[in-house]
Amino acid sequence: MLIDRKNWQTHSRWCFAVVFITLASVVWFCCLRWYSGEWAGGSSPTGFAFGLIGGAIIVFECFLWVRKKYLRTWRIGRAQTWLKIHIWLGLLCLPLLVMHSGLRWGGWLSFVLMLLLIFVVASGVFGLILQNILPKRMLEEIPAETIYSQIDTLGGQLFSEADRLVSVTCGTKPLVTSAELESGPIVVGAIRTVGLVQGKSLELRPAVPIADAEALKMFFENEVASFLRRGREGNPSVADASKSAVLFQNLKTQVPPAAHDVVSAIENFCEQRRQWDTQARMHFWLHSWLLVHFPFSVALLVLMLVHMFVALKFY
């Protein structure tokens, strides 16, 4: 969730509430220390209260998953309100539960619980930071962004189109033979960028072989084909924008000027594929923190229940 100057107003009251409760709790906790001479533990009324509130917050926090997974269409508050509460209460529960521990690690269960809590909160904060950074970067750096799950399919389509362009230009057989690939005109044009519909100015010309364009075929087979199909894993030489620019510039010196627009088109395809690689990378970071946050949260919840049972049993 983006938290910035523009939408700070919607977060400010939550932030002030959390800061206020935290400060009040810390003051109260310190007063108890001054009064009793030791930090209040989990079994003290105050510590128990902190634990109870913290535990309730953790249970509530876990309900966000249920809300998002199974109750998407339930009218039980907008998902963004749930997430907002999730963030701020999640931040609040850390100081509460630290105070609940009486600033002691305790036994192995308490120790593991505290570690898990720290991991969960830290991974959540990390995710929040990524959510504040990466979408903006994606917007700026990936004008050709597409739906993440479609990247491989679209990469395949780019390869097919490039294969067709090269085979008709060089008068050779395409790498992948299909009736569809062998027919149709050559379409050359810029890819879509944010806010502009450039597809309308595509240039169309008949597909005719161009003499002395074999270098294009070689370059396509050696450098481009695997990159378009598999992205960065395929071939790193055109995966780098600056190297790619040099390689394509060199290629243009080796083929007749009539084939230059085809070379440019394939350069555009590589640029598009590079953007999708970047998108895939950013998408991974944007969502992979959940791989830590979610299982640790589940572990925290389970161990917390065990801790509650043990603590109440031996209270």
């Binding site: 983006l2 939408n7 907008r78 998902a79 963004q80 997430l83 959510q131």
Partner: peptide, 16 residues
């Protein structure tokens, strides 16, 4: 048909 609140907006957790 449901309640007039588009589910797509209602379910967006990021206010996007």
């Amino acid at each position: 048909d449901l309640d007039g609140q588009p589910s797509c907006v209602y379910a967006c957790p990021h206010d996007a």
